[in-house]
Design a protein around this nucleic acid. Structure first.
Lengths: 225, 225, 225, 225
DNA sequence: CATGAATGAGACTTCATTCAT
DNA sequence: AATGAATGAAGTCTCATTCAT
């Protein structure tokens, strides 16, 4: 990069606006799309609105993403599926009891997904999956399946180490997932809350649920869900 | 039923059939609407399809319900809000411990709502509520508020009787609701389930969750939601 | 049909307008579509324009024909493919020399197709076929193939009866078709004509071409177009 | 070519390559445009595709040709109208009978135009002319008019020399043109051909048609077009 | 000169709702 | 009361053309 670049940057700070924008566009569009998809759902989000929020015209959106469906897939990849490699590695490297691992898992999930806009994507797929089979299939492959696989490995680790009872692994997965899904809905649906009812403290809620699940998974007596 | 009805039955059986159908119309439409709303969501359900399933023409639907939104409200009233008077009475008359009352409450909810198509309406509102504010408000007033009120009275009964610890009532409500909501989603979303994973047994799942909640509400030590 | 119908027809002649229109609609739309397709081509004809010319709105067109392509197919069926059964029967029943049959065939083709708007459909497919493969395939199946089959049978009849030389039948078909295609283009393309050049007399032109072809098909000396 | 060119060739070979490409640009674009126009038609050919095939960017295309229409005109000039001066000269210098001249004319047309991509332009104008009146007018002026003029002079030469009967010259022109147009359509439309029908031999077809036309033009009895 | 990001008019199609019959 | 033909706003996507870099 020549020095002249910096010079012109100084005197004509707008000079590379277009150039910079070009690289930033997909990201800006993905963020706008995430916001709107989460807010209004897939079908109810108009392509033009996404473009407008990203500060571009209708046409520009289709310059980067060939269709609304592909835009959605890109949003999912960007915000959810792209992270599984990182998480898998993290849990591969985890040292400590599987109970701690599960507690950590649920806490970290809330931190990195549940509490963010990304969790709205899951709510969206729960709602509209049936109307957009291709998106549903994509989401299942890219998010649900890896997620379940990760949890399954954790549960199995606990069983193999003798820490957990030899429960039905799939049932255990649902027991872990259920409170997470509830939290997402609670976060993304004004529906559940009424009037001036007091708020949920998600971290605390999850912590309690974690203990409940672990109680059900505990070795000695009888096994849970 | 007036005597004239029987007379017409005898002498004008043809005329009467029509009459009966006429009176049955709204009910048939409501049932068709419930099916389709639950299956495809509110926005994605086409008015014509509802009419077709009820065996009438598009125009007839709008003869009985002035708009798709009013149709939806009628479906909600018919299937959910209309039942609260009955439930309130039932719990008013309940004799026994509040723990049993809560267990009974969750079990009976599954029997009468959770396991039926009606539960799809809740899922629907969770998903599409934001796009149809008027429907959301209606649902909140007609279903969420009475439901929360009922639960609140149960929890308070337990606290007042010294059976439950003096917990935050609203938090306790969420603890009860959460597994119900999860079950509804599990029932109405292919999304959550993957491949050949084993099924959940809803009754068992609810029973376990009930015990967990009751454990959290128990008197002695200290309680969390 | 009750007498009251006629009475109301007298006093309220507009009464059955809607009813009558309902039955006439498809036909009116097909005619409007034929006009516009022939005039502007398939791609350049806007659905709304077809509707407007038929005196209805955009939506109404799609009430009768699910897509622009299906509309086009219906136009082809109505104006071309539907007629082959009639023509086949006519030639089955033809008595006389095959030479006369061929002369008659070309003359009748001009009368019933070539000189009508329907011939514009052929011109259209020649132009746009490549851009709309499904339409092209449909047209080939429904028009080109039956047309060639009919001609092939005529030529073969002549050969079998010893009236024609045993020429290559397919070549002969092209020799018959060529002037017809030229006439269609001449009719539908302002392109070919220039300034004040005198007009072609299609009937005469075809008659001469028919003799030329028959000369080429004649038995004795050497054969083939 | 100025001497400076050679100097730059030696000392700035890099710079020169660019220069050469620069000069070649329009030609490359015209060739790409010819290919695509002939293949897909005028309306269906996208400007970006032309640019891509020529190895330049969309912007560059509009640098050389102010619009798609102007590009098309340039293609026509390059491939058709530009050649008439050469042809006129050739026929001016022709020595021999007018019959031979006409035979030669049709043969040479096939060699130099009919069998090349350029003939696709005629088919294109026949098809899309009506949708692009300015192009149609241009084509008429630049191609049709000179072409007809050339043929008219040939026919007239034959009549003046007593070789041909005093037929209607314009009719005679159509008789000559018709088989040429048919051949172009046959070459550029999959439409006309069906299944495995045997091919046409264009040279032979034209030769036969030439004799037919000449027969019609012959002096003695009475003539038709 | 060359690029390619950006635009926006315009095309097809859907569907809640109206209304003449 | 019942019908179903008709409407038209709205949504997705395309592509010739422009212009900052």
């Amino acid at each position: 990069m020549p020095a002249s670049r910096f010079i012109s940057d100084k005197f004509f700070p707008e000079r590379n606006k277009r150039e910079r924008r070009k690289e930033a566009r997909p990201g800006e569009l993905l963020e706008a799309a995430l916001d709107l998809f989460v807010d209004k759902g897939f079908a109810a989000t108009r392509a033009e609105e996404v473009a407008a929020r990203a500060g571009v015209s209708k046409g520009t959106l289709f310059l980067y993403f060939p269709s609304k469906e592909e835009l959605f897939k890109a949003v999912v990849t960007e915000n959810l599926s792209g992270r599984f490699t990182e998480w898998n590695a993290e849990f591969e490297a985890f040292e400590g009891s599987t109970s701690d691992m599960l507690r950590y898992c649920m806490r970290i999930w809330w931190e990195r997904v549940g509490s963010t806009k990304a969790s709205g994507l899951t709510k969206l797929m729960l709602s509209e999956g049936r109307n957009f089979p291709e998106l549903a299939e994509f989401y299942r492959q890219e998010v649900v399946r890896p997620g379940h696989a990760l949890l399954r490995r954790i549960i199995r680790r606990g069983i193999d180490s003798g820490e957990f009872a030899p429960v039905d692994v799939d049932h255990a997965i649902y027991a872990v997932i259920a409170p997470m899904i509830f939290l997402m809905l609670w976060k993304h649906s004004a529906m559940i809350c009424v009037d001036g009812e007091s708020e949920i403290d998600p971290e605390k809620y999850l912590a309690i649920q974690a203990e409940t699940v672990l109680h059900g998974l505990a070795m000695p007596p009888k096994a849970g869900p």
